[in-house]
Design a binder for these strands. Sequence first.
DNA 1: CAGCATCCCCACTGATACTG
DNA 2: CAGTATCAGTGGGGATGCTG
Lengths: 118, 118
Amino acid sequence: MKMRSDYTCPLELTHDIIRGKWKPLILWLLSKSGCSPSALKKSIPGISQKMLLQHLNELLECGVIQKTTSERYPLKTEYSLTQRGQKIFEAVSIMQSVGIEMMLEDNREDFLRDKGLL
Amino acid sequence: MKMRSDYTCPLELTHDIIRGKWKPLILWLLSKSGCSPSALKKSIPGISQKMLLQHLNELLECGVIQKTTSERYPLKTEYSLTQRGQKIFEAVSIMQSVGIEMMLEDNREDFLRDKGLL
DNA sequence: CAGCATCCCCACTGATACTG
DNA sequence: CAGTATCAGTGGGGATGCTG
């Protein structure tokens, strides 16, 4: 993910961090509990392992998530939000509620009910 | 801007709407007052006219902004947020405050002071 | 299971010129 | 000033296979 070198406005910094296609959803899932890569992959229909790892590494670089790894077999890795990640999650959380409101306006209650959001 | 055809989560809908490189900033500027395209261009260093108009049209399609045009010369167009746009702006607004917090952590007070944000 | 490497496509972005 | 059209570069993202 190409980050801007200079910013017009602080919101562009936040924007660059969550711009990736699956990043908001990853942050959303990690906010609920730490997750292994395989657990994340199962929860995100359509994502490839490559994109998952790439996005995770970029989020690591930005300091919004952290990981812990067990050195011995079976390999076990867990990603979780850092304190900075929890700030970013405030934005993601608003995005979620705004999305729900828009879907309600568009009569998508069916979708929301399927997801257990109503 | 390619929108997903189906969504795992409502937050992806919000994400798709503001994913464009300059969209958060455009919404931020429009939230303060209606703006003409030329005024927006002046306020957004680095944006080309093509990208500005393209992003505006996409935001129009999503129903988050609206425009009013005077038919006669001199041509005068003004874009502004719709009610839905004001909901999206809630997310953009949080992105701004989170961005400010992160910049403060990174000792970027200088930047924020330049922008009149401190 | 976690992570990396390679190949490839196309969407996003940019630069420029043109029309009403 | 608002808006459109064309051409081109790049990097985000998908598919697949390999390694520890």
